[in-house]
Design a protein around this nucleic acid. Sequence first.
DNA 1: CAAAAATGTTTAGTTTAATAAACAATTACA
DNA 2: TGTAATTGTTTATTAAACTAAACATTTTTG
Lengths: 182, 182
Amino acid sequence: MDQDIGQRLRAIRTRLGLSQRHLARVSGVANATISQIEAGRLNPTVSMLKRVLDGIPMSLSEFFADDFEAGDRIFFRAEELTEIADGGVSFRQVGANLQNKAIQLLRECYQPGSGTGRHAITHEGEECGIVLSGRLEVTVGDSTEILRAGDAYYFRSDQPHRFHNPGNEPCELITACSPPSF
Amino acid sequence: MDQDIGQRLRAIRTRLGLSQRHLARVSGVANATISQIEAGRLNPTVSMLKRVLDGIPMSLSEFFADDFEAGDRIFFRAEELTEIADGGVSFRQVGANLQNKAIQLLRECYQPGSGTGRHAITHEGEECGIVLSGRLEVTVGDSTEILRAGDAYYFRSDQPHRFHNPGNEPCELITACSPPSF
DNA sequence: CAAAAATGTTTAGTTTAATAAACAATTACA
DNA sequence: TGTAATTGTTTATTAAACTAAACATTTTTG
């Protein structure tokens, strides 16, 4: 962990062309502190790390964006999620290249009036989602709800279901299917 | 800062109905540590905070998501940045509702072959940007450069300038104008 | 080339985080 | 009711973060 923090800080600092001393000066900490943090010989306090990042400047949230939990190909940048349009519906699949995924995570966008079609869908597995923006009419079995930002759903996919954007603005949402449906 | 961390941790913990001792047990830290962190009497190290959050579980990124820097209307969620299409060029403006902004921050997307038009633009102020993905041909005065991900520019807007995506994939970038150009 | 400035590292000393254990107060329960 | 369990807090000790200053290299510069 301490190693990761240091490696990360060093990568960020050098990428910006800052020296340890320069960063130390603008952030008001001792240069030795930065040296030892980067070398993994020191476990910085949160406020210390924040002071250092303030000199960049970078928020703690940005710094931890990828959150260290390493492994091969866990994180995908926004620009990597290439869009696949299908009528008024578009998808950005997380890890589109990955084979044999257990979960298919999509960022979907429903244009006004668009949807998954007249007929309800039925397939194996389970699916869930949370609405980011816009409104989405979700029909599962004989239940229908209109979801707004922050609302969410979860159901077994063998129940007939249907999605439709009834509003006049696009609806963006994050969905997950297991197993992947395509 | 230490206060904020503590208040935040306490809010999260109590919202989940966990006691200090329970959280301490599952995360493997002393309950006194959690008590003092929450009381703001202790400045936790990053790894300590991570250990505590692992017991919830919650990532550091999630914990710092709002990053403390309070104030009225500083942060704008991705879904708030509504898209404005204009031919092959689309914009998502940060704080579109705000009046009398000094800076206009946009997330722009240039479709392949699209651009700001045949004729160079000239207007008051300064502008800059950094490319997120794709390639962008930027002409300022009689200088032309092709920028890729990570590249950036900065120039006075009274110099004739022109943007164009010469590639076969969309180009996304973040730009800033001061004062706003529309 | 030599002086000077800037780079990252190391060390000793001081401050402080983290722990274990005791404390006080409230809640469960028999 | 009163005993026991659970809650958050406090205290003394230990471990470690942080600093200042010196060190060793490399880069700049006249």
